[in-house]
Write a protein that binds this DNA or RNA. Sequence first.
DNA 1: CTGACTTGCCACGGAATCCGAACCGGAGCG
DNA 2: CGCTCCGGTTCGGATTCCGTGGCAAGTCAG
Lengths: 155, 155
Amino acid sequence: MAPRSRPLVLDDVSKAIIEQLQTDGRRSYSEIGKAVGLSEAAVRQRVQKLTDAGVMQVVAVTDPMQLGFYRQAMIGIRVSGDTTAVAEEIGAIPAVDYVVLTAGSFDILAEVVCENDDDLIDLLNKRIRGIDGVQSTETFVYLRLHKQFYNWGTR
Amino acid sequence: MAPRSRPLVLDDVSKAIIEQLQTDGRRSYSEIGKAVGLSEAAVRQRVQKLTDAGVMQVVAVTDPMQLGFYRQAMIGIRVSGDTTAVAEEIGAIPAVDYVVLTAGSFDILAEVVCENDDDLIDLLNKRIRGIDGVQSTETFVYLRLHKQFYNWGTR
DNA sequence: CTGACTTGCCACGGAATCCGAACCGGAGCG
DNA sequence: CGCTCCGGTTCGGATTCCGTGGCAAGTCAG
């Protein structure tokens, strides 16, 4: 949770390792080593370094729909005053899984995951719009998730 | 890439397994089994089923910044005609990692990952705005990613 | 140049894990 | 009752994980 580390240049081998784990996070070190031309131990050390440095993390990602969260939305938020403070507060809400400060007609974009429409309404009215500094919000209800990639690493 | 398997109810044990893998995608089956009260083989079978069904996938997620992608943005797109077709075309662009059909003042939201501003400009002008049916776009350049969670599974 | 230090990789071996297959018990059904 | 399906457990051999030690190639100071 603390990516406090130097730039940490990534050579081609590390990129290759990341690509391997992007396609399958459970691939064995020796298999990766075979693919990138390194020994098992070397791969292991590099993966450890990469995760320690916060460059990469291996996790399970899920389909919210199939877990009972039937309503997702992106919320554009206009703020007066310190955007960071507001972002902090919004990020503290459990239903919010993604917060980013932006330039443009919104100051903050927040993605939320709710079980149903009632939860979304409550979230908006009772939580987000009540935050000090929030001027206005605009909600984009998700109709269909069409693409979701995690392998933007090296192209 | 094809979540073609509808019903598949998730009991508490499967949810617990998912939570384990959400905190660490490389945790061993036996360790998970110990945590959720199942044998190693049973955990393995369930994980296999869950991934096959598209409920969950274990992957490496990376910090784009540390991989040389210094410019991210969300692009709101207004479309005339079939939104699905446009979404399909946008999703085919490598720099686009996230596409969702929405209700609201945008028809499509697309997150893009670029190396720099020039790439972003080219992406917008030469790729996205050239797609048939795209009426207008609005770009929200990311200033700072503030929160990003993958563990929305069960709360 | 040289010696101390650092860094990254490989080799190795014991412990742990993975993984396929066999087995088992309960539920549903004719 | 016999049969099948399902999900769990057990089991054993192959594989992987992981700590450790060694080695070669820098780097730096004197």
